[in-house]
Structure formats: structure tokens, C-alpha cells
Amino acid sequence: MPRPTVTLSNDTITRDRIEQLLADDALLVFDACDLEGADLSRLNLQECVFQHCAVAGASFYAANLARTRWQRCRGGHADFESSDLVDARFEGCDLNNASWRRTKLASATFRGCKLTGARFEEVGQLGLSFEDCLLVGADLRRMSFRKARLNGLDFSEADLAGCDFRDAVFEGGSLRDAHIKDARFEQADLREADLGGLKLSNAKLFAGATISPRQAAELVRAMGLNVG
């Protein structure tokens, strides 16, 4: 028997109310609801839908959010630490400065999201994908983007230390002033990426990568040399 669907619209939702509905095994759809600052930690919310919701400062610590759908939600400083977001979908969400520490993000998708300052330490990421996302100043240390097609990702000023970009293809996007200590770019295609701010000391990290003649000229000028 399919789970009954309960839609909650334009309301401020409490944890007690959610727990009561979950006790009836309901599939919850949150439409334009206010969940700001709510404690939703450890709840089983798998397959629930969040659309146009305010979740800023909410805690989803260790919650089961597998196969959830998030559309145009606003969640600055939301806490997803240690939650299960396997196969979750985020579209058009503002999740600036959110914490994803130790989150399971296998096969999760972020499309058209603002993730400025977000922290992705120690996440499980097999099959994780980003598209047209702002990751400015985000903490993405040691994440793997190997062989990925990176469409419109702004990594400006992000911490990419130890990241693996081998064989990745950058379709637009930016690495301007990113922190790339120990990152790997062998065989990456960087011709469409903004490489502004690259320092001579970092140039060896791009050995084996492909850049355009324009980018090469910009890098030479950044080193204080004149192109004749």
C-alpha cells in the first residue's frame, strides 16, 4: 500500500507536528513552509518534498533525507551534518554557509544552487554532481571531481586543497583565487574556466592540463612577463 501524502502549505511547522504525521507513515510535502531554526535532527524524512520553504538555521543533524526533493528553498546556515541525503535533489536553492560535514551525498544532485561558504568536509560523494552552482568560498577539501563534466561551477576563493580534477572538463565556471594546494589537474580541460589569480607557485599543479592560448597569455602576464 502506498504511503499517504500530506501537504503542508504556508505554515510554521513544529517538530512535534512532524513527528505526529510521521507516526502515521505519511509522505510529507512542505510547500512554502517556515522551518527556520527548527530542530529536525534524527527524523526519518526520506522521500519528503520541500518546495519554496525557509529552512535557514534549521538542524537536520543525522536525519534520514534520502531521496528528498528540494526546490527553491532558502537555507542559509542550515545544518545537514551526518544526515543521509543519498539520491537527494536540490534545485534553485539558496544554501549559503550550510554545513554538510560527514553527510552521505552519494548520487545527490545540486542544480542552480547558491552554496557560497558551504562546508563539505568528509562527505560520502560517489555520484555527487553539481551544475550551475555558486561554490564561492566553499570548503571542498579532498573531494573528487575526477572525469566529471563541471558545468558552470564558480569555485572562486573556494578551498580545493587536495581535490582531484584529473580528466575533468570545465564547461565555464571559475577557479579564480581558489586555494588549490595539492590539487590534481592532470589531463583536465580548463579552456573555458576563469583561472584568474593563479600564482606561479601553483603552475606546476596544472602540468598535463589543457588551457587556451588566451589563458596562457594571461598567465604569462600575471607572472610579470610581456608577450611579444
Rank of each mutant, 00 (worst) to 15 (best):
M1G: 15
P4A: 08
V6H: 11
V6R: 09
L8I: 14
N10C: 09
D11L: 10
I13R: 01
T14L: 04
R15T: 02
D16R: 00
D16I: 13
E19Q: 14
A23H: 01
D24E: 15
A26R: 12
A26G: 02
A26V: 09
L27Q: 07
L35R: 01
L35W: 05
G37N: 06
S41G: 11
L43K: 03
L45G: 04
Q46F: 04
V49Q: 14
F50A: 01
H52C: 13
C53M: 09
C53F: 01
V55A: 05
G57Y: 13
S59I: 03
Y61E: 12
A62T: 09
N64P: 02
N64S: 09
R67F: 12
R67Y: 04
T68Y: 10
R69Q: 12
R72L: 15
R72C: 12
C73V: 06
C73N: 11
G75N: 10
A78M: 14
D79K: 06
D84Y: 04
R89V: 11
N97I: 10
N97C: 08
S99G: 11
R101E: 07
S107I: 02
A108M: 10
T109I: 10
T109V: 08
F110H: 15
R111V: 08
G112P: 05
C113N: 07
K114Y: 13
R119T: 13
F120P: 07
L126E: 10
L126H: 13
F130L: 10
E131K: 13
D132W: 09
C133F: 11
L134M: 02
G137T: 13
G137R: 14
A138T: 07
D139I: 05
R142E: 09
M143I: 13
L150G: 03
L160Y: 10
G162I: 00
D164W: 00
E171V: 14
G172Q: 08
S174H: 04
H179M: 08
D182F: 01
D182H: 02
E186L: 00
E192T: 11
A193H: 07
D194L: 07
G196S: 14
G197T: 08
K199I: 05
L205R: 03
L205S: 00
G208R: 02
T210N: 08
T210V: 11
I211K: 03
I211G: 03
A216N: 11
A217T: 13
G228K: 09
